[in-house]
Computed example of a mutant assay.
Amino acid sequence: MKRTIVLRRALLTGATLSALLLATAACTDDDMAGMDHGGRSPNATASESAHASAGAVNDADVMFAQMMIPHHRQAVEMADLAPTRANDAELKDLAAKIKAAQDPEISTMTGWLTGWGKPTAAPEGHAMPGMGTPMPGMSAAETGIPGMAGMASEEQMNKLKADMGSEFDKLFAQMMIAHHKGAIDMAKTEQTDGSNAEAKALAATIEADQAAEVQTLQRILDRL
């Protein structure tokens, strides 16, 4: 009799344990139902969706990066001439700042285009909507990049490379003012038409920084 009671108790204990295990498993399954296949909660998914939206890219973003890269490269090329050809100390200092700012921005925009799966060069014949006109006295064709506002022609670059001292200083200031104004036009267009948050933020920085540099360049030019 005692043996039968003990056996029954053992069976009941086992059944209770099984029920508890099944309930635990059910809770685990319910918890997992609130997760996506990557093990993320609904809140994490919503957060990632918001991030994806902030990183959305449209044609204006792509064109901005594709056009600003060669634009920056020419500014850096001009700035590289200043240490050995310029006479004005303030102009030399500003040229160094231009190079220090625009070199990293070239790398940033190149990285964006690669990440977006887009070519780093704009298709031939494309121009950024809303851009201004090329440098005074120069046709769009002379820039080598139609519609690229402020870009210096090969002839102008050759003259800058040949000048020294105060002549270099004057031409550099004139060319960089026009160059910066072209970049400002492009940056304004990106802020209006672009979609990518990072690209628009960079465009705002370019507009503000280069507008300040235009004022400095004009002050230098006025006293040369």
Rank of each mutant, 00 (worst) to 15 (best):
M164P: 00
K159C: 06
G38C: 10
M1G: 15
A204H: 05
M157E: 04
N87T: 12
D222H: 09
E207Y: 11
M35K: 13
T143A: 01
R223Y: 01
L171G: 00
G34D: 10
L171D: 09
A197N: 12
I177F: 13
L94A: 09
T84R: 11
G144I: 05
R223H: 11
G132D: 05
G165W: 01
E198T: 08
Q66F: 00
L21F: 13
P83K: 10
L11N: 07
A86E: 03
Q191V: 02
T114E: 13
K170P: 02
D93Y: 05
Q66H: 04
M157Q: 12
A141E: 13
N87K: 09
W116C: 01
M78A: 13
A89Y: 01
G147Y: 01
E142H: 00
A96Y: 00
K99Q: 06
A201F: 03
R40C: 01
E213R: 02
S195D: 12
C27R: 15
L217S: 06
M164S: 14
A86Q: 03
E155R: 12
G182N: 12
M128T: 07
A56E: 15
K118G: 00
G111M: 02
E142G: 06
S195L: 13
Q66N: 04
M128H: 05
S139I: 05
T45N: 10
S41D: 08
I220W: 08
C27D: 14
I184Q: 04
D193N: 12
C27T: 12
T114V: 12
D88I: 12
A204Q: 14
H72N: 06
K92I: 09
P134F: 11
D163R: 03
P136G: 06
T84W: 05
A173K: 08
E213C: 05
G115S: 02
R9T: 10
M157G: 07
A95M: 05
M32I: 13
T108D: 08
K181M: 14
A100R: 09
S41Y: 13
R85D: 04
M148A: 14
E124T: 13
Q102D: 03
